[in-house]
Amino acid sequence: MKPDSTTRASLAPHHRLRASINLGNPILAGTDPVTGRLRGVSIDLAMEMGRRLGVDVELIAFDTAGKSVQAVAEENADVGFFAIDPARGASIAFTAAYVLIEGFYLVRETSPIKTNADVDRPEHRVVVGQGSAYDLFLSRELKHAQIVRAPSSPAVVRTFLEQQLEVAAGVKQQLEQQAAGEPGLHLLPERFMVIQQAMGTPKSRGDEAALFLRQFVEEMKASGFVADALARHGINGASVAPPKE
Rank of each mutant, 00 (worst) to 15 (best):
M1E: 15
M1A: 15
P3C: 09
P3H: 08
D4V: 00
T7E: 15
A12R: 00
R16T: 01
L17R: 04
A19V: 02
S20G: 13
I21D: 11
N22C: 06
L23Q: 02
N25M: 03
I27Q: 10
G30I: 01
G36C: 12
L38E: 12
G40V: 00
S42N: 05
I43K: 01
M47R: 04
M47N: 02
E48L: 09
G50D: 13
R52M: 06
L53E: 00
L53Q: 03
V55D: 13
V55L: 13
V55P: 12
D56M: 09
V57P: 08
E58Q: 09
I60D: 14
F62P: 02
D63S: 10
D63I: 05
K67A: 09
K67V: 00
V69Y: 06
Q70F: 06
E74P: 09
A83N: 09
P86S: 11
A87H: 04
S91W: 10
S91D: 15
S91T: 15
F94C: 13
F94T: 01
A97R: 00
V99I: 03
I101W: 07
L106T: 03
S111C: 11
I113L: 15
K114E: 15
N116V: 03
D118K: 03
V119A: 15
P122G: 15
E123N: 14
H124P: 10
V126K: 05
Y134E: 00
F137L: 04
S139T: 09
R140M: 12
A145H: 02
P151L: 13
P151S: 15
S152Y: 09
V156N: 06
R158W: 08
R158N: 07
F160M: 08
Q163V: 12
Q164I: 03
L165F: 14
E166F: 00
V167P: 03
G170C: 10
V171W: 10
K172R: 05
Q173I: 01
Q173A: 12
Q174M: 08
Q174S: 08
Q174A: 06
Q174P: 12
E176W: 03
Q177Y: 13
A179Q: 09
A180D: 15
L185S: 04
L185P: 05
L187Q: 04
L188P: 04
L188T: 05
E190T: 08
F192E: 10
Q196G: 08
Q197W: 05
Q197H: 11
M199Y: 10
P202R: 05
K203C: 14
R205Y: 02
D207W: 04
E208R: 01
A209N: 01
F212S: 12
F216N: 02
E218N: 06
M220T: 03
A222V: 04
F225P: 03
V226R: 08
V226L: 11
V226I: 07
A227S: 06
A229K: 05
L230A: 04
A231D: 12
A231W: 07
A231Y: 12
R232S: 14
R232N: 14
H233Q: 05
H233L: 07
G234I: 02
I235G: 11
N236C: 08
G237A: 02
A238F: 02
A238T: 06
V240A: 08
P243Y: 15
K244V: 13
